[in-house]
């Protein structure tokens, strides 16, 4: 396999984590909007969603940090 193909596959697997973080965010925002529409303890759902969204974004961030700092080395001459 070419280096380029490997890199693209790696990027795709990494993007799954971002996909998860983004879809969780989207889902929670949707649920907060719904709970606002039906006037169903809005503050509770808001706080829960803020907490959870942060966790997922930090996790995706850490993984991306690892990915890009492992790859940065390849581009610079050692």
């Amino acid at each position: 396999m070419k280096d380029r193909t490997v890199y693209i596959i790696q990027l795709i697997t990494l993007s799954f984590n971002w996909l998860l973080a983004i879809s969780v965010t989207w889902w929670f925002v949707h649920l907060v909007v719904v709970s606002n529409q039906v006037k169903d303890t809005q503050t509770a759902s808001l706080w829960i969603s803020i907490l959870a969204i942060t966790v997922f974004w930090i996790l995706a961030g850490v993984l991306s940090y690892v990915f890009f700092s492992l790859h940065r080395r390849e581009k610079e001459p050692a």
Binding site: W27, F28, L31, S35, D40, A44, S45, I48
Partner: peptide, 8 residues
């Protein structure tokens, strides 16, 4: 759960 879930 995704469409009409209750975070509460």
């Amino acid at each position: 759960l995704f469409e009409r879930g209750r975070l509460q």
